[in-house]
Simulated scan of single mutants.
Amino acid sequence: MKLSAPIFQLKRRAKLISRDSRIPLNEVLDQIAQEEGFQRWSMLSACMAAYPQPKSLLAKLHNGDMLLFAGRPGHGKTKLGLQLLIDSINDDRRAVLFTLEFTEQQAIKHVQSLEKKAPGISDSLEIITSDEISADYIISHLSGSKPGTVAVIDYLQVLDQQRHKPPLSEQVRALDDFAKQVGVIFGFISQIDRSFDADNKALPDIHDLRLPNHVELSLFTKACFVHNGKTQFQMVA
Rank of each mutant, 00 (worst) to 15 (best):
W41H: 12
M43A: 14
G64M: 07
I7H: 01
F188Y: 14
T221G: 11
D136G: 07
I206D: 08
K230Y: 12
S18I: 06
E216L: 11
F196C: 00
L61K: 01
S143F: 13
S56D: 05
L168G: 10
T103Y: 02
D30P: 03
K116I: 07
K230R: 15
F220Y: 09
H227M: 06
G148Q: 01
I189Y: 10
M66P: 09
P167S: 12
V172G: 11
Q191A: 07
A49F: 04
F225Q: 05
R173M: 08
D20V: 08
V28Y: 01
H214Q: 11
A107T: 02
I89G: 00
K55Y: 13
G64F: 02
K2F: 00
L159K: 05
V215E: 06
L175M: 15
Q112P: 10
K109F: 13
Q9V: 14
G229A: 08
P119W: 01
E35P: 00
Q112C: 12
Q34P: 01
D91G: 01
Q161G: 04
L61G: 03
Y51C: 10
E35N: 04
K77M: 04
T78F: 05
A59M: 06
E35K: 05
S143E: 15
N90H: 13
H164D: 14
G148P: 00
G120D: 10
D87M: 03
E216P: 03
S124Q: 12
V28T: 09
D208R: 00
L44N: 07
I139S: 03
R194M: 02
V215S: 07
A49W: 09
V152A: 02
I121Q: 06
E115I: 04
Q31Y: 15
E27L: 08
P166N: 09
G71W: 00
I7M: 12
K230Q: 15
M235D: 07
S122P: 09
P166T: 04
K165Y: 07
H207T: 14
L3Y: 00
I206V: 13
L25T: 06
N63Y: 15
D208P: 00
S124N: 12
A202Y: 02
G74A: 01
L29S: 03
F8M: 08
G71T: 00
V184Q: 04
F8L: 09
Q191Y: 01
L84N: 04
H110M: 06
V182R: 12
V182Q: 14
T78E: 08
D91W: 07
H214V: 10
A95V: 06
I127Y: 11
Y155Q: 07
P54C: 08
H227T: 03
E101Q: 12
A198E: 13
V150A: 07
K2P: 00
S42E: 15
L85A: 03
A46E: 12
V150W: 04
L159M: 14
S140H: 13
